[in-house]
Design a protein around this nucleic acid. Structure first.
Length: 283
DNA sequence: TGAGTCAAATTGCAAC
DNA sequence: GTTGCAATTTGACTCA
């Protein structure tokens, strides 16, 4: 832009912008009001896109030579008799756009001034701003939609990663439980062997055997895990289910496996959390 | 030439 | 009564 089109006017809001032709002078040397005829001449001088050229040729006032101003008493209700709908020419749109950027609300005074300067009816200026706000709102909605779409994609990606991690952790848990169970089984076998070798009147051994009774299992049958239903000493049950009982105090284990067990124990502090959706339905 | 697009304009409603 | 908004209509224009 060779000319910024800005003009100061004490009678208008600070964001009011008069069209460039006023300040540039070349278009208004004769001191006549800027109207459609003048704007059409502007297009002839500067060159306009083909489409806009067509529009300027069909602009009202160009053919008839009449100048429309805001002071005209033309009805604001619809087009004047016999007048077809015409697009605004490029300079009118430019001026309106610049004004819109400065403020998308149209004060009555600004509307009148713009209408006068552009050779439009105030109603036309108001309608243009109204439609422009609608277009702006549509654009904003499209932008917001794009942002939300990107956020959704990011969340999906994050969710997939979490699910992969979750599966790994589940596998780790199962492997860990399987290993502990087999260790306990071996331990029990060794214990049985030692018992058989020892005297049968050992009270300690009797106590241990009594604890292996299924009927004294601390948990109801439906809470038992499938992997140990065939071989399930009471101690195994105790170990395996202790993490599910909030009141159970887990022993702290310091190695890597222990840290994972500690994690399981800490899960008892979070009753609402469980990584398996059907955790209540094992079997 | 007809479908699609864009923008000007209308209509109806609500808020102030 | 005025203004803004959403929905809709209308007309000019483009393009395959």
């Amino acid at each position: 832009m060779a000319c910024n089109g800005m003009a100061s006017s004490s009678s208008f809001p600070s964001n009011f912008m008069v069209p460039m032709q006023i300040n540039c002078g070349e278009e208004n040397q004769l001191g006549i009001p800027v109207g459609p005829l003048l704007l059409a001449n502007l297009q002839d001088l500067r060159g306009v896109p083909p489409m806009m050229g067509k529009i300027s040729r069909s602009f009202p006032g160009i053919e008839t030579g009449d100048e429309m101003t805001a002071d005209d008493d033309l009805s604001d209700d619809g087009l004047p008799a016999g007048e077809k709908k015409k697009r605004l020419n490029i300079e009118q749109v430019r001026t309106l756009e610049r004004n819109f950027e400065l403020g998308n609300r149209l004060e009555p005074e600004r509307k009148m001034q713009l209408a006068r300067v552009l050779g439009l009816r105030p109603r036309q200026v108001a309608i243009w701003f109204q439609n422009r706000r609608a277009r702006w709102k549509t654009k904003q909605l499209e932008k917001e939609y794009d942002v939300l779409k990107r956020q959704l994609e990011a969340t999906k990606t994050e969710n997939e990663a979490l699910q992969v991690q979750n599966k790994k952790l589940q596998a780790e848990i199962l492997a860990l439980r399987g290993g502990e169970a087999s260790e306990l089984i071996n331990l029990n076998k060794e214990t049985e062997g030692s018992c058989s070798n020892r005297s049968e009147n050992s009270s300690d051994i009797n106590l241990d055997i009594s604890r292996t009774s299924v009927t004294e299992s601390p948990l109801p049958p439906h809470q038992t895990l499938p992997y140990f239903q065939s071989v399930r000493p009471a101690d195994t049950d105790l170990l395996l289910h202790s993490s599910c009982k909030p009141e159970f105090q887990c022993p702290k284990v310091e190695n890597d496996e222990g840290s994972f067990i500690n994690l399981l124990c800490s899960m008892g502090d979070q009753p609402a959390f469980w990584p398996w959706p059907d955790h209540h339905n094992f079997h």
